[in-house]
């Protein structure tokens, strides 16, 4: 197999694919987990059912992006995979157990013997969603500081845990604004209003700490001309935050106008934040320790994966669009028949 790309390009392409998969996961399962965290806020069983129905057809495919993201880390950067996952052994295990409870709760709550059994699985759904969000945020914080074991770094990780959970609550609420109606939609608008500024604070916090991690990252942001070229990132983030907050104050609008905007605005915010992180850490796959070139697998193996990905990813995107169209619009009751 002869590589059809210069070998030094392959790690770059795979870093891009992996970043895209992780971003897709954070956005897509982010709204699922957010809805799960919001579940106790619903007024009664009917509203809880509707909230679960709003994510029921999506969560499985959404979660698959996590498998692809970590799978790409595993296959393209095996050395980094081992380093990251052994450093994050306990939070990864907690996240997996949490995701297990969340995932099976969809099925078990629908098949529960009685109302008490169903409430128990609702609790598992909420607890699983919250714990998964917290452990992912914790991992983000540990990763950003290069797995620094100091208490200050642990404190930062704890703040990241809370911050990511709030961000998920926001995008989950924004999803419900789009996908539900009536009293539940009004409630979701309230949740989104409550979450947006704490989320903004979280973005600000991580953005402020990241450049302090190393001189390299600091210079990457504040040297001229970088500081000018990068100015659109924080400016666009601020504009989106203020714009969505203003819109939320007036929602719901007559005829349910602009119902999609908070969600896609949240997607925009996630992308901007992620782009900032990526800019800070590139070309390191383990911050300040291992670059993507040092960690990459053999070129012939990456080539064969890339060939497959180029054929299959467009197909995956196409049928994802089909599924989103089939389950478009306001959430209806989910039944098997």
């Amino acid at each position: 197999m002869t590589p059809f790309l210069p070998p030094e390009w392959l790690p770059l392409v795979f870093a891009g694919l992996m970043a895209a998969a992780i971003l897709a996961y954070v956005v897509l399962d982010g709204f699922d987990l957010g809805v799960g965290i919001l579940l106790p806020g619903a007024a009664g069983e009917a509203e809880r059912d509707r909230m679960v129905a709003a994510i029921g057809p999506f969560w499985d495919a959404n979660e698959t992006w996590l498998v692809l993201g970590v799978g790409l880390l595993l296959v393209a950067f095996p050395a980094a995979h081992g380093m990251v996952l052994t450093e994050l052994y306990l939070p990864v295990a907690l996240m997996l157990i949490a995701l297990t409870f969340r995932g099976v709760a969809f099925e078990f709550r629908a098949k529960a013997a009685d109302a008490r059994g169903k409430r128990r699985w609702d609790a598992a759904f909420f607890g699983g969603s919250l714990l998964a969000a917290l452990s992912q945020g914790w991992m983000l914080g540990r990763y950003v500081l290069g797995f620094d074991p100091s208490p200050a770094a642990q404190g930062f990780a704890a703040m990241c845990a809370a911050g990511l959970a709030i961000a998920y609550v926001f995008i989950g609420a924004a999803w419900l604004v789009w996908r539900t109606e009536g009293a539940l939609q009004r409630r979701a608008i309230g949740w989104a209003r409550a979450a947006i500024w704490p989320m903004g604070l979280g973005i600000l916090l991580v953005s402020a700490v990241t450049p302090l991690v190393s001189e390299r990252i600091f210079r990457r942001w504040f040297d001229v001309p970088e500081v000018l070229l990068l100015a659109p990132l924080p400016l666009a983030t601020a504009a989106l935050l203020f714009g969505i907050a203003a819109l939320l104050r007036h929602m719901p609008l007559p005829g349910d106008a602009l119902r999609r905007v908070p969600f896609w605005g949240a997607v925009g915010l996630f992308c901007l934040f992620f782009a900032g992180l990526a800019w800070s850490f590139f070309p390191y796959v383990v911050p300040e320790r291992l670059t993507i070139w040092e960690a990459a697998s053999a070129p012939e193996s990456l080539t064969i994966i890339l060939l497959g990905a180029l054929f299959v990813l467009p197909v995956i995107l196409a049928y994802t669009v089909v599924a989103w169209r089939v389950f478009g619009g306001k959430a209806k009751a989910l039944t098997y028949h």
């Binding site: 499985d60 595993l74 296959v75 697998s297 193996s301 064969i304 990813l313 049928y319 994802t320 089909v322």
Partner: peptide, 22 residues
């Protein structure tokens, strides 16, 4: 990993997304 990686990647790409979506 040079052997196992592509095989696992093909599983995710050709199977996981297909079954999870449909």
């Amino acid at each position: 990993g040079n052997i196992a990686g592509p095989l696992l990647a093909y599983e995710v790409l050709t199977a996981f997304f297909l079954e999870a979506t449909f």
